[in-house]
Write a protein that binds this DNA or RNA. Sequence first.
DNA 1: CTTTAGGCAGGACAAATGTCCTTTTTTGTA
DNA 2: TACAAAAAAGGACATTTGTCCTGCCTAAAG
Lengths: 191, 191
Amino acid sequence: MIRKNPELVAYSEVLFQKGVDGMHEEEFGPRQLILEQDHRYTKIYLIKKGIAKCYILDENGKEFIQEFLGEGMEFGELEIFRNKLTICSVESITSLKVFSFTYSCFNNLLKADFKFNQLIMKALADKIRYKAPRHSYQHAYPIEDNILKLQRMFPEITEVISKKDIANYIGVTPRSLNRALKGLREKKQSS
Amino acid sequence: MIRKNPELVAYSEVLFQKGVDGMHEEEFGPRQLILEQDHRYTKIYLIKKGIAKCYILDENGKEFIQEFLGEGMEFGELEIFRNKLTICSVESITSLKVFSFTYSCFNNLLKADFKFNQLIMKALADKIRYKAPRHSYQHAYPIEDNILKLQRMFPEITEVISKKDIANYIGVTPRSLNRALKGLREKKQSS
DNA sequence: CTTTAGGCAGGACAAATGTCCTTTTTTGTA
DNA sequence: TACAAAAAAGGACATTTGTCCTGCCTAAAG
């Protein structure tokens, strides 16, 4: 559930070593807002190290977390294909090391480097494959089942990510998350 | 909410006229299962005419509709990038005319035809942009608001798509959909 | 004309989740 | 160590949504 893409980060490292024009290394501290929803940017980012969250804020100020981004995940890339505003905000959770690509650099790579093109294509397809079942699962199953699934897939989750973020990821209030966690504790004891 | 991509269908028409190898025209009747979840296929489809639904079935047999596909929408393409099983089933609603691409044809086009490559890249990005806010909106707002939004964006929806499908698209039971519709009718009267 | 199957509407109740608080625990800092 | 601020836990109640039925209506088939 903290998504990764080692292949893409490895290949980007190679490109960077080659001195591709328009690629840079950058760093961010924890809890920094990197992209803001409904804005326009001119760079694409790829995480080398650290964790970020990508979320949508609705008009009531509730945040709905789309995904947690780990090594090799890129963001800000959707806006290059159509000239549109960002749909998500991205904020670092831990401190972050990233590669940044200028738009023209990214476009050049897509055109001239078929391996890069393929990797980005795969990354987009993975994002779709990831998003689709997630929401239907969350809708169709009670909160407790969602928590169990999370814990199975990523046991150390509570050590890295706050309760509030976990609740926003599952799409429930912290109150409901607590209730479900209590329910699970009780079931565990009695068994 | 019935998504379209005229640019892609127009360009595919051009490719087909050129006689690209591995492209075919096919037709389906209404309510036909074209792709089944958790299976492997060797073709990619692109809708020329008609409407289909793309949905996920969970273990309890509930279906959650991901999107309604109209002209220019492609499906079966996610599985070509990673060698994986389909995550959705796709079923025609009306009768359907489609182009089909064999995997090798599709791969060749991606590699040799940059315009095609770009169009597919855009289509993937659009799918992501479409899915993200949809689920967060559905989660964050009551059913009535979701219905109003649907009706605003697509007034003739009830003429094409059954109540059950609409409910499965919003992610609620038909009972809840009815309740919400009744609520809306009452509000309308009193105003 | 009757029969039957399927879609649609809705009543009654149960269960899940949200809202609004208060209390407890943890954490960071003077 | 002590204090303030933030995060987490949970009680009480309201609201939303689901489940399980029943009945109505329509259309297609005998």
